[in-house]
Amino acid sequence: MINWFKYSAPSTFYPLAGKLIPVFWTLAALLGAIGLYISFFVAPTDAQQGEGYRIIFIHVPASWMSMFIYCIMAFWSLLGLTFNTRLSGMMTRALAPTGALFAFLSLWTGALWGKPMWGAWWVWDARLTSELILFFLYIGFMALQAAIDDPRRADRAGALLSLVGVVNVPIIYFSVKWWNTLHQGASVSLTKSPSMATTMLWGMLTMALAFWAYTIAVALMRARTIMLEREGNTEWVQHLPDVKEAA
């Protein structure tokens, strides 16, 4: 069995993450290129929305990521509160800005899609409003972390906030079922076959995988930076080749 606790020590996690980052950047670039190619050159014109529907290829993956990332933050928070490991707080912190970015992109692309199709940049519909709340939760998490000086206390406070806030994720997901929303229902679900052309579906899934790889790469980069910031006075950081090299 793998000793997971060994990898939860920043000193072992740091070099491991360093090896993984280029792998995920390569994956992100490859999948992104294929995804964009499908989005613009393979997927056919939509019968109702013409070429305007192509926003779906980033809108849906960005929205998915904004929800997934929050769930992963809640997962790390739970681990952090249970095992009191330093890594979990660092990972939660490393993920938050990327999650906020995807929540923002989801709202932004949604507005640019809503205007030509619905005639409004924004409506106070359950789906849109709950996604906006998710964006505020990310901002709130980051503000809370920045406001508390002691990193370990900030970690615990942030962990509580992300665990409480995670209740919003199923609300976003099911909002189109529970309420009458202007936002359309799910085109892809776990229980039914998707209600869209297969090429469109493949484009969306490829873009979603590219966003996954991007998220992992950038979150690992940020986690490593947080380790340097927090553990700058420890032996293992001071002996890192990264720190010694440029000196």
């Binding site: 013409g50 305007g52 980033i58 809108h59 932004w108 640019l112 030509p116």
Partner: peptide, 11 residues
């Protein structure tokens, strides 16, 4: 983009 250029490229 079939008249949707602003919206698609803006996204």
């Amino acid at each position: 983009m079939g008249g949707y250029g602003f919206y698609v490229w803006g996204s």
